[in-house]
């Protein structure tokens, strides 16, 4: 597998991480080394193997449908970068 510089920029944008040309080149070199190591997996025969998503073979436990939370927005918003009238403020959302 070869990861191109363009792909590095594409995934950086997908991950919303600003990356300049110098960083992209540097990251590109390191990611290539990492993927060379990861590519070892491609040689493994996994025919018929069930993927393992969880460390324990368990099923979900559920909670009853009850309201257990109270309004704590003032407390939660103490660490917010920008709030007004109880709303989180962000740069204009365009649809």
């Amino acid at each position: 597998m070869t990861l191109t510089l363009d792909e590095v920029r594409r995934i950086a944008h997908l991950a919303r991480i600003e990356i300049d040309a110098r960083e992209a080149a540097e990251v590109h070199a390191k990611l290539e080394a990492i993927f060379t190591m990861i590519d070892e997996l491609q040689a493994v025969d996994t025919t018929g193997v069930e993927p393992m998503s969880h460390a324990q073979d368990v099923v979900l436990t559920m909670r009853e449908d009850r309201v257990t939370e109270t309004d704590r927005h003032a407390e939660y918003q103490r660490v917010a970068p920008a709030v007004e009238d109880g709303l989180y403020l962000v740069p204009r959302v365009v649809e």
Binding site: I38, Q42, V44, T46, E50, P51, S53
Partner: peptide, 15 residues
Amino acid sequence: DAYYLKAQKVRRLIA
């Protein structure tokens, strides 16, 4: 499929 799913399958082999 080539990476994530593959890794999950090899994870099973390790287990």
